[in-house]
Structures are given as structure tokens and as C-alpha cells.
Design a protein around this nucleic acid. Structure first.
Lengths: 192, 192, 192, 192
DNA sequence: CATGAATGAGAGTTCATTCAT
DNA sequence: GATGAATGAACTCTCATTCAT
């Protein structure tokens, strides 16, 4: 594995654990057992690491959702998209956090690439909903609102989870609850 | 306005703008045009300010939701609860952020009061859902999952909004979209 | 008890526990349950408290040694002086510390009073030794050296004790050791 | 001279002048004309400097006393030990202060090394006294008390000196007095 | 007589960053 | 390609002290 990757991995791990501000270049350097100065050979500054990470997060997410594209039935595709979107958030809370929760510290060039990925993913999602609409799957034809509503649910679910706002539910029940909620929203969508 | 309030206001504003770690006591002091040392006359340390703020947020939220309790019909009550929950988030993004998004820096005693408020509010919400279930309003009787699902949607909606993840929608359309989504989820709930 | 006394008592206790620099006016104020500003009504500043304390220490020491003056036999007087000198150090480690160990932060007027007391005490001690010499109690007639040597022993004994340099001796044996050492030096003096 | 040494030297000088609490990292930095942050490249924190210093002091003391070990006659060895102990204190008042007077700010690992040195030195001293006892040099056979008594005298002598409690003796006479006192205690020991 | 309110100065410490090697 | 050495700026927090009330 080459350097940039190693730095990103360490940074990611630390960012997630202690938040952006809680991580220092020194910490990252220590984690990969190099000197702080070395980091600067690969990244201009701290925020560049941040953006690189955000980009990587977007890439991982894309890869995670890639298989969905092959599903023919729009409805099946939509369901699988949702399932995998949530799954991505649960498996990579740090990446999800970076993409959808963390307050971004001003844009950058790197970031634009990331933005493109995000837009692409979102478009794909909306198109899938549109396909369902076209197939008269729902009574409603308001594609935009349908897509947005589903997204709200999925994002709410993941972000309550990873920002630890489910403490009123016993630890071991949380995941099951999330799963049941996903099934429920699917059912609810069916009579949209 | 007295000091503690002034500090809290400044802190709230800054926390919201730059996150907990991004704000220094110095920043707060500057904002209210006092010396840093003065802050310590009113709050023991930084985290105490944070907890005071969180508590205030919880109190404002409670007040915002208070009128809901008077509504007799469980279903109407549930809808109004949702509407007002979202409304609170939109009107006080900084407070909402503090309560449901910000990563908390370890608990404290002060915080327990806050936690109680949160639990109370959540219980009220779940009880309302339960009342709907008891009134055979839904086909489903899984109160817990219903409540959680609705919460996910509302939280997702608010948090995508205040953490600025709706950039793909033109600024002026966002609020309308949120409103439409709320109506849609209500409809969806009707055929649960 | 009046204020100045109360301040001094609190200060003394704290100085001893945490050292001069470890004590703040605030600490003292808290200890006597007054506001810091109040302290300044009674003492100009921190160092003045320090000097007042030193003076008090000297007074307590004088009182502790007072009974000695009444002893007729020079030799008995000398022994009792030593015994009481050490006893004072053991009973009031904080005061002894202040008088004989603490590095004094520049002189002051107050301090001169203290100095006078110290000189008086020392003179009395030397005179007692002189009386022993005059009574041909020792073979040696070098009063100054005899006095100084005895003082060295007593001071060494007390200061090793109160600055905790006797850790190689088990706690419970220390006092006994000190006592035996005093007896030994008395014996040694007899064949001076 | 390398950095760590330079820091230690400056720190030693300042500690001696103003006490542990009176010295700030900033002070030390200024003294060696570096930035405060630089200090932290060489020592983890303030107390580590302190302990390093204490260790160095113990090492210098050991070296100072080393030649004593070669003396065969126990009595000669004992006398020379005393002479050199006092000599060490006079020549390195700051080091002596650190070892035997300064109030220590809690132990540490570094410190344990220092403690070992101290114990070794003390043991050697006691063994020497024991050797004298074994050789029936004294009438008394209470090794422990003898050793302790001699130590008290030496420590008292040095510490009155370096903590400036000999102001009643004219400056130029002080050293001579100390010397005479040492001779006297030796004589006194002879008839123990 | 006592204090609440305020602060400048300074404490220890960590950080992102640079640069000569 | 990597780093040791260095630092200015910032951090949280405490202190002695003042002054209007």
C-alpha cells in the first residue's frame, strides 16, 4: 500500500474517533509511524487530507452501490438502493459521517470531484424513483418528493445511529429496529 | 440581558458556525467584548457552557412542543407533534444541531437534566403513537417501529437541511420540498 | 477572633500544605469564606501575608521557648532549649518551615520585626551555651562553634523530618529515631 | 553542548533562584533563547525536567562521593564521607537543594532511578558507620542512631548555609565556622 | 465592612506548519 | 523520500489585583 493511502486510512480512523478538530497531523503521523513533516510531502495541509478523505468516501460509497445498477426491475432496484445506502452508512460510519454530516470547511478543487460523484449518485437514485413512477408503481407522480422523502428516512436512520442518538433503545436492539424500520418504509412506499 | 445569557448566545452562535472544537473561550469572549477570564466567572469551563446550551436547547424544544399535549385526537396530536418537531429544527437549527447532531464531549451532571427532558419528550412521542395504535389507526401494531420510522424521517429531513446537504435543490425550493415531504409521510402513515 | 488572624491561620495551613506558590489569594478567601477582595482590606498583597505569617511564626516559637528562660542550671537550660526547639519544629512544621527553610522573597518592614525576634532567640541560645562554657561544662571554650554545631544538628533533624527526607526509615520509627538522636547529641556534648 | 543539557542547566539555575513553582517553561525557554514549544521536544513536561535534574543531582553527588569508597580505614572513610558530603552541598547548592530540601512534586519513574541512587548512597554511609561500630570505634553500638545523628548535623550545616539562615554571622566567617563545626562533630563522634 | 465584576498577565501545553539536511 | 529541529500562534485556565458600589 502506498503512502497516500496509508495516511488517509489513519486519518479516517482518527477523524471518526475524535472528530476533525480532535485530530492533529502529529496524531496521524504517529499512527503510521512517520514524522509529521512527512505528511506534508503527500498532502499540502490538513484540509487537503480532509478533502481527499471525502473523495475517497464518495468513491467507496459509489462502489458499494454499484451492483444496484444491474437490477432490472425499478422497484427492486429502488429497494436494493435503499438497503445498500443504509448498509454503507452502518459499515462505514466514518465515511458516511464525512459525506452527509460533517460540516465542510469551505470548498476546494479536490472537493469538486467529490461533489460530482455525489450528484451522480443522487441522480441515479432519482432516476430509479422516476422509473418506478413511469411504471405506475406509485399512485403519486411527484418523483422529487418521493425520492427526497425516502432519502430523509434513510439518512435519519443512519445518522441517528452513528451520532449516537439511540441511547434510549438498548444497544443490542438497535440494529434490529433499523432493519424493521427499513421494511416498514418499503411497505409504506408501496401504497404511496 | 445578563451575562450568562449573553455568553450562551455568543457561544451558541459560534458553536453552530464552527462546531464545538472550533470555538475557543477566547472567541466567545471576543464576541461579547469581554476578557477570556470573565467567562470563567460565569461558567466553570468550556464544557459547562456546552451543557448549559444543550439544556437550554432541550428546554426551548420542550416549550415548542408543549401545545401539542392539549390535542385530544391521537392522530391529530401525532401530526402536530411531527410538524412542530420539524418546525423547531428549522427555526432553531443551532439548538437542533446541539441536541441531535453534535458529537457530545462526555456526559456531566448538568447534562442529566437535559437527558431527562429528552427522554420525556421521546416518551410523549411514543405514547402518542401508542394511542394511535390503540385506536386501531394503523394496521400495524408495532408501536416502537412506527415511532422510530417517523422519527427517522423527521430527523433526516431536518438534519439534511441544517447540515446543508440539499445543495442539489435550488435554495428557494427547499422549504417547499420539506413541507411536501412531511405531507407525504403523513399520507404514507395513514396506510401503515 | 478577628479577621487578620483568621486570614493568617488559613494562609498558614495552605502554605504548609502546598507551598507558598501553590497558594492563591482565592484559596485563602475560600478557606475563610470571604471574597478575595476582602483579603486586600487587611493585607496589601500576598507577600505581606507571607511576612505577617513569618512574624507570627517567630512569636509562636518565642512563646514555645519562653519557659526555658526560667531554668537556672545552664546545662539543664541548654538541654531544654534544644528539646523545645525540636519540639516546636515537630509540632508546627509549617511555622518552622517558614522560619528556617522557605526561601524568603525579599525583605520588608514587617520582616524586620521578625528578624529581631530571631536574633533575640539566637542570642539567648548562644548566651546559654556561653554560660555552660563559663561554668567549665565543656573542655572546649569555643562558644560560637559549640552553639552552631548544636544548632546544625537540631535544624538538620527537624528539616529532614518536615521536608520528608526520612523515607528510608519506616514511618513509625522516625520519631523514636529523632528522640534517640537528641539523646545522643546531648551525650556527645557532654564530652565536648 | 546539546539541547537537553542546555535546558537542564538553565532550569537548574532558575529553580535554585526562584523555586520550582517560580519557574515557568517560558522562563527556561527565554534563558536559552528558544521558543517555549521547543522545550517540549526534549522534555515531556515541566515535572520531567525537574526529575531529570534531580537525577543529575544524584549522579553528581555520587561522583563527588565516589573516591571515598577507596579508603580502607572505616573511620577515615567516615570522616571523608562527611567532608565530601558537605563539600558537595557547598559547591553545588542548587543540586543539594533539589535533593534534600525542595518539596518534590509527586514521584515518577525517572525519579525512581534517582531514589535508587539516594538509597545506595545512604546505605554506603550506614555501612561505613557499621564498620566503625564493628571495629569498636565507638562505645555506642547503635549504628542507626549514630549514622542519623551525623547526617542531621551535616544536613543542618549545609541547609542553613544554602537557605541563608546564617545572616547573624558575618559573611566572611561563615565558611570557617562550618569547617570548625565539622571538626568539632568529628571530635564529638570520637567519644560516642 | 465587604463584595461582584472585571481584567491583564501569564501559566502549561499542543498545533499546523516550515525548512535545512 | 524522510526527518529533526524549530516556532508562532493558539489553546484552556488561574492568578493577583483593582475598583465602583
Amino acid at each position: 500500500m502506498e503512502m497516500r493511502k496509508r495516511i488517509l486510512d489513519a486519518a479516517l480512523h482518527l477523524f471518526r474517533e475524535r472528530g476533525y478538530d480532535g485530530v492533529s497531523i502529529r496524531n496521524i503521523a504517529e499512527a503510521i509511524e512517520y514524522s509529521p513533516a512527512t505528511i506534508y510531502l503527500y498532502y499540502k495541509d490538513k484540509s487537503e487530507i480532509f478533502f481527499a478523505l471525502q473523495f475517497e468516501a464518495a468513491a467507496v460509497k459509489r462502489d458499494h452501490l454499484l451492483p444496484v445498477a444491474g437490477i432490472e426491475s425499478p422497484w427492486e432496484r429502488l429497494i436494493e438502493f435503499g438497503r445498500r445506502y443504509i448498509d454503507f452508512g452502518m459499515k462505514h460510519p466514518d465515511l458516511y459521517d464525512l459525506l452527509f454530516i460533517t460540516r465542510t470547511p469551505m470548498e476546494s478543487i479536490e472537493n469538486q470531484e467529490c461533489w460530482k460523484l455525489g450528484v451522480a449518485s443522487h441522480s441515479f437514485f432519482v432516476e430509479t424513483v422516476q422509473a418506478c413512477v413511469d411504471a405506475r408503481f406509485f399512485k403519486s407522480t411527484d418523483t422529487e418528493t418521493i425520492a427526497y422523502t425516502l432519502w430523509c428516512h434513510a439518512h435519519g436512520l443512519v445518522s441517528l445511529f452513528i451520532r449516537e442518538r439511540m441511547r434510549m433503545y438498548p444497544e443490542e436492539k438497535r440494529e434490529a429496529l433499523a432493519k424493521k424500520s427499513f421494511e416498514m418504509i418499503v411497505k409504506m412506499a408501496e401504497c404511496l
